[in-house]
Design a protein around this nucleic acid. Structure first.
Lengths: 282, 282
DNA sequence: AACGATTTGTTCGTATGTATC
DNA sequence: TGATACATACGAACAAATCGT
């Protein structure tokens, strides 16, 4: 039964975090102090701390100490379009609302301000998963548009959209502009090419971050914090994929909501006042 | 530039996994062999392996060795109801289809057979997130039904549904049966109490597994493999929550799909033939 | 700007325990 | 049972980051 020593020490520290005195953000005793307190070697203490780290309970900062992680109030993103007004035909509503301002994800969380970088535009060829989701042969010329997205100035998501490069030659020239398309690419394509997006499919997976993502989101290199990866394929009137948008979000600060049928609006009280009875000013 | 030694060794091993000879499932050289090969101490070699483990690239088995993890073909679950037949009123369709056999998640992956345990039924009181999502005061009497769900015999998800215990006294007596409710609790409640579920909301988050989940899903105790946690709140005609279902899935073997608007059915080719060029009969 | 004190990070060595075949 | 392989635990030394003086 006797668990290894480092895990017993970890359990003891965990208790103090879950119940006892250790508050989020607070510093733990230093490794040297813990060595004396538990009578174990420093390596064993470090094993215990590593265990707690892998559980996402503490984080270490070189030169400073070990700290209890504070949970982040999650950003909430609705994947389905805004609830259709009752009585309206379904198709007409789906994409007029939810996919308004350039891209569908809306920040439901009030008081938070999303912002984006101007897109970085590249010409590339379809390959692998991208070709598969767009249902085009490998090597098909594409346009990709890359954006960094922030909420209140903190990194929120990395987004890449792919379009067939044929759209460009057919007249949708602003697809390769490095400026944003304020009215949204979906609407822009409808106006210029008559391509109406009649629906989309999201595919939600989780994977480990790569080096770029870990650095951008400021999460540990290793896989402790996963990344939501959402593939959104948009379909036109002929049920042909007309675009693919891949967005990556850290799992530690994001939630997604899917509404089906007739559901009440997301109440503010549903996400707030989880465990902060104090303060309410913006 | 000069990364720590253990990470340089890890990178070298990683290259062999990504490009070179090391196939999924294959065994790496033993720690002692790696000590000789790289001229580093065993602790440093173990640090390198630990790094690769945290990236989810390898796994260690005491007494056997270190192995390259093989990725699992993911189970695909559609969260939205089956595509409504065009022209039908929206509300009537939403829940007749997708939420047929007891619960909404369908296994889209062909050739795979889901199975469930008989539910374990408990009487309990609403608390915390459950009370919040059901929009009832803390302490409200509830019925909870717990199921283990498998696909092809391997653990797939853990599911708990909560209903107000008042439903039981009002006549829905089978809610406390330890037998399954083959026609589905949603339909059962409609037939006995006239409670129609007109919509539902899913909330998708990722968190670390607890001890029970780690053991059931056979994933490491630490947080390397996250858990999808999906809260599904069902609403009745009066927009009041009538049930809450919480389902937990390991992120390493699950994907979710959300359909909005008019989208073509999920083609088999979209998930198959990722890296198996052979065989194509259906 | 420089230095010293503090704290975590990296690397070595060594010994023993435990799981698997 | 023995051999092999990973897991745990100790001790020690130096490096690198941070902070205050």
């Amino acid at each position: 039964m006797a668990n290894p020593l480092y895990r017993m020490i970890a359990e003891d520290l965990r208790d103090q975090i879950d119940n006892g005195g250790l508050e989020p953000g607070q510093q733990l005793r230093t490794e040297t102090e813990l060595v004396e307190h538990y009578g174990a070697s420093r390596n064993t203490i470090r094993d215990a701390i590593r265990w707690l780290m892998s559980l996402g309970l503490v984080e270490t900062r070189p030169g400073q100490g070990t700290f209890v992680v504070k949970k982040i109030t999650p950003y909430i993103t609705t994947l389905t379009a805004a609830a259709p007004a009752r009585g309206l035909p379904h198709d007409d509503v789906v994409l007029a609302q939810g996919e308004g301002g350039g891209y569908a994800f809306e920040v439901k969380q009030q008081k938070r301000q999303p912002s984006f970088t101007d897109p970085e535009v590249r010409a590339e060829k379809a390959a692998g998963a991208v070709a598969q989701r767009l249902q085009v042969p490998e090597g098909t010329p594409l346009i990709s548009r890359h954006e960094k997205r922030y909420i209140d100035g903190t990194p929120w998501s990395l987004q890449t959209s792919f379009y067939p490069r044929a759209f460009f030659s057919q007249g949708a020239e602003r697809l390769m502009d490095a400026d944003g398309i304020p009215e949204g690419t979906v609407r822009y394509l409808a106006e210029t090419l008559g391509l109406r997006q009649v629906g989309y499919r999201d595919r939600i997976t989780v994977r480990a971050p790569d080096a770029v993502e870990a650095s951008f989101f400021n999460v540990p290199q290793d896989g402790r914090v996963g990344m939501f990866e959402i593939f959104r394929t948009g379909f036109d009137q002929t049920h042909t994929p007309m675009r693919l948008t891949v967005t990556v979000f850290p799992t530690d600060r994001n939630e997604f909501v899917v509404n089906v049928g007739d559901v009440p609006p997301l109440a503010m009280s549903e996400e707030e006042e989880e465990e902060r009875p104090e303060q309410a000013s913006a």
